[in-house]
């Protein structure tokens, strides 16, 4: 049994039970419904800000973009301006495609060493597809949830809900994003378990957020379609959170423990975020191999901590080899006589 995913799995189960029992049995609705979410958001905002600022404080001494295409040189050779961007605009395009379409991952190949000694590399897009499905589904779910935090609910949010429920099946109408999110998370988790190399590199830190997000999706789906909860009461609470005017305790007590489990998962995710790999959300913007121009030979980059170093100067070099150089007919700055005179 793999400790890494078992621990993560157990952690998620325990987290749920804490919130469920804490509300249903102990009656800590205020704690799980109000105090913890606030604390989590605070940790998220401060933690995220601090982490990004810690990156900002580190210098960018050299311009080291990975060039993934033809450089801009002679006028008759067509440069690849996106993968080898020489202007800020082109870098913006590169970054946009990277962030929005996961372009580098789209290059992914899978190596196969065949028995006959051939090694092949085939395009392998499942990871790209899974990642894209996961991120977009998650984003949609997030935006959709704004209906709980805005009153009146703005038209664009409603529009997204309508689109998300485009196929109008099930009752309440099934949101595709929720299903896709759960499926994508499951795929991403399963590949960590079943692909040997990925399993070998995976840490508990990799399984935990996946299980946690799966928990969020699962409890959400449960509340919407199966073990239905008091939506109006929930919105009264969530609106209370963003307007600082909370409903009466009776309302909080009337909401199912399932919801508090869901909310606690989200709180844990928020608080965990800034200290984890999930910070790739911010980090991708600051990746020096992607966000810098490649015109490094045309425009000088300044290193803020560039310091003088000890070098072996030409004069020292000539002193070392003067006789041999003269003998070989190589020009010298100081003649043998002058050097000898200087020594005396």
């Amino acid at each position: 049994m793999n400790v890494k995913y078992m621990y993560s799995f157990l952690a998620v189960i325990v987290l749920f039970l804490i919130a469920y029992v804490g509300t249903e049995a102990v009656g800590l609705q205020w704690l799980f419904g109000v105090l913890i979410p606030y604390a989590a958001l605070l940790v998220f905002v401060i933690g995220f800000g601090r982490r990004v600022m810690s990156w900002a404080r580190s210098a960018v001494p050299f311009r080291i973009p990975t060039t993934c295409g033809q450089q801009k040189t002679l006028p008759w050779i067509r440069p690849n301006s996106i993968d080898n961007p020489t202007t800020t605009g082109a870098v913006a395009v590169r970054m946009f495609l990277e962030i929005v379409t996961f372009r580098s991952l789209f290059r992914n190949t899978r190596m196969k060493a065949k028995a006959d000694g051939r090694i092949t590399y085939q395009l392998e897009l499942f990871l790209w597809l899974g990642a894209l499905a996961f991120h977009y589904a998650f984003a949609t779910v997030l935006v959709r949830h704004l209906r709980f935090f805005m009153e009146p609910v703005p038209v664009p949010i409603k529009l997204i809900e309508t689109l998300d429920a485009f196929f109008q099946f099930g009752l309440p109408v099934v949101y595709l994003s929720g299903v896709v999110l759960a499926a994508a998370v499951l795929y991403l988790a399963l590949r960590r378990v079943f692909i040997p190399t990925v399993r070998y590199i995976s840490l508990a830190n990799d399984f935990f957020p996946l299980f946690l997000i799966f928990g969020i999706a699962f409890t959400g789906i449960l509340m919407r379609y199966f073990a239905k909860v008091d939506i109006v009461g929930i919105k009264a609470l969530t609106m209370g959170l963003v307007t600082f005017s909370f409903p009466e305790s009776e309302v909080l007590k009337g909401i199912s423990g399932l919801f508090y489990g869901h909310l606690f998962f989200v709180s844990v995710l928020l608080a965990y975020f800034p200290f984890s790999k999930l910070m790739h959300l911010g980090g991708i913007f600051l990746s020096p191999t992607r966000n810098l121009t490649t015109d490094t030979r045309a425009r000088r980059h300044v290193n803020p901590w560039n310091y003088p170093v000890k070098v072996h100067t030409y004069e020292e070099y000539e002193d070392d080899f003067r006789e041999k150089m003269v003998e070989a007919g190589l020009p010298v700055v100081k003649s043998l006589e002058a050097a000898a005179a200087e020594k005396e």
Binding site: L41, F44, V45, F48, G49, L146, F149, M150, E151, V232, G233, K235, A236, M239, V242, T243, S245, P247, V251
Partner: peptide
């Protein structure tokens, strides 16, 4: 961070009772 805390700004000064 403004985007993340958007609901707080959006509802600022508005009471939205159930």
């Amino acid at each position: 961070l403004v985007m993340v805390t958007f609901p707080f700004w959006y509802n600022l000064g508005k009471a939205a009772p159930a």
